[in-house]
Design a protein around this nucleic acid. Structure first.
Lengths: 339, 339
DNA sequence: TTGAAAGCGCTAACAA
DNA sequence: TTGTTAGCGCTTTCAA
């Protein structure tokens, strides 16, 4: 049985209150008793009960994070990287992280409600923000602390970090055009994701800047998984692009696989560019040219901002937009002659 | 302000007790009041306070998982896959998962103590068991529920799932020998990991079975990261192996990179085999031959067994040893002639 | 069938 | 400087 304040109080013949105050270093306890109580607490191996403290203080010192997941072999390394940043920052500030894994959709929204309503966490992290994101609408409505990786179109104010996907895609298109590509396909993310809109916009702007007409046929929707990328790329390849931009790295990997199965050599017959720069992007076959976002850092930053909100502190720079960095590896090359 | 039992009680003019019992479907509440209370609770949007329930019930309905992590760009996709299985199983059984991310070592052990002592979780998951694992010694000593992915040498009984690394490595060696390899290097995991011992044993048995003398020089220790694998492989390459076995897939990726930087073509000039079959193993350059373990399923199983322990149920098959499956891709091939 | 009271372990007004 | 009391929100004896 764990040692409680009462046990200590009985042992030293003082009240629970005094013990509590001594242990919390209040200055209205005599140094002598303070020392005594501390020593005894130490001896008895006392540890405060987190649950009781939570109940009393009305806070849980815990933040929640719902990871979108699809089941076996669909986990996105992006999230381990993000979680590492998030978790390390949280533990630095003595917070715990409660993780739920849910497939995106109603179940996921339900997980958010549950965490809020049961008061299990003091704040929530949102990733992959959506158009009219019900999670954001809900949390803002409840005035529940949250922080997002991604912007929103809901017109509510909240702290976020995002990456400028528009600029990123424009840059990527420009880079490809510079290599002589003109038929550039795009495997989009699901249309309800905010970042998809920005990236698609960048894609179109990039084409326009170089006088390349936009062809709706060259845009296919993926689902951010490798398999989805594979299938989308198969459709796309029928339209003979010389380059493919992908909504994220996993999608790009699927596209690479599809191209290779079609007998193409990626980096020579066709170019592929991803988005994220997950740690493994440099170890694919061929190594993946991609738009890097500093995932780990973003996880840390998002966590830090959320804790500021929770503590009621101002969040000096609550709207961070980072520029993705085009990392050129071997999955891209000059457009094949002819075609 | 969240609605409490008291609010409902005031509203319907009954006691908190009755409200509580009605909501928990006790059969000593009249159907009429039960219906009334339920309706009002519904209207007012009542949700029980998880913390208060925990304090009262003495359980948290939460399990803890400490993820070994090293910082930016070192996260192992293995863990996202494992966490997905763990989390999905937990939520199926209405449990939450509290995640800590810590670098392996004293800090990590400390995280375990903290979770136990503060009674924040009802049970813990351990991965990558170690020799004389202090976490296991501690938890067993405290009689705290836990379940592990990996065996122990401590002679204490606890439920676990493990993969037969000895058999796996023997098989891998056999496969390589069949391809004509005789100088087979091994990039070990850290020596304190249980699974390293089993795999190393399998490696040696495999060599022995084929009459190949064991050369200590052909074993180099890695740290399970890609970078570690890269460095270890560089040392190893100086001793001119024709094949390299790696402690896990990330290590194998590092080895592949090292080989390529040394001007070797992997799959032709040198063969590399990993362990895990992380989802991306099939997308490396070249696709990785590896020993597959069903990570997602293992996560689910380990979670299920832990919840059985927590609930005080028997764990019918608490000692699961799975056979890894050799998945042959293109990172392996016949030993180069000559040499 | 309902309610009063106690208690889970802790903190914090307020008294002494 | 210390103790008494109350209360966080809930569950659960025990009485009524």
């Amino acid at each position: 049985m764990p040692v409680t304040l009462k046990d200590i109080a009985n042992r030293v013949g003082l009240s629970v209150t005094t013990v509590s105050r001594a242990l919390n270093d209040y200055d209205d306890v005599s140094p002598a008793t303070k020392a005594l109580i501390r020593r005894v607490a130490q001896e008895m191996g006392y540890r405060p009960d987190a649950t009781a403290q939570k109940l009393q203080k009305g806070r849980t010192d815990t933040i929640g994070f719902v990871i979108p997941t699809f089941g076996p072999r669909f986990s996105d390394p992006f999230f381990s990287e993000f979680l590492a940043g998030l978790g390390n920052q949280a533990s630095e500030e003595n917070f715990d992280v409660l993780v739920s894994t849910r497939a995106p959709g109603p179940e996921e929204d339900e997980a958010y409600r549950r965490l809020v309503e049961s008061r299990r966490v003091d704040g929530l992290i949102i990733v992959r923000t959506r158009h009219h994101d019900p999670r954001i609408a809900y949390l803002a409505d409840q005035r529940f602390p949250f922080c997002a990786f991604g912007r929103s179109d809901l017109g509510v104010d909240f702290p976020y970090v995002d990456v400028d996907g528009t600029q990123g895609l424009r840059e990527a298109v420009g880079y490809l055009v510079g290599l002589g590509h003109r038929r550039i396909g795009y495997i989009a993310a699901p249309g309800n994701l905010m970042f998809n809109t920005f990236r698609l916009q960048g894609y179109r702007q990039g084409l326009e800047e170089h006088g390349i007409p936009f062809e709706p046929d060259l845009v296919v929707e993926g689902d951010l998984t490798e398999r989805g990328g594979f299938q989308a790329a198969q459709k796309l390849l029928a339209r003979h692009p010389t380059a493919i931009l992908a909504g994220n790295d996993l999608t790009a990997l699927g596209a690479i696989r599809a191209a290779q199965e079609a007998g193409l050599e990626v980096g020579r017959d066709i170019s592929v560019i991803g988005f994220d720069d997950i740690p493994l992007a440099e170890h694919t076959h061929p190594p993946l040219t991609t738009l890097r976002q500093p995932i780990y850092q973003i996880g840390k930053t998002v966590c830090r901002m959320l804790l500021q909100v929770i503590r009621g502190e101002p969040v000096p720079d609550g709207h961070v937009i980072l520029s993705p960095e085009l990392v050129i590896r071997q999955s891209t090359g000059p457009a094949p002659a002819g075609e």
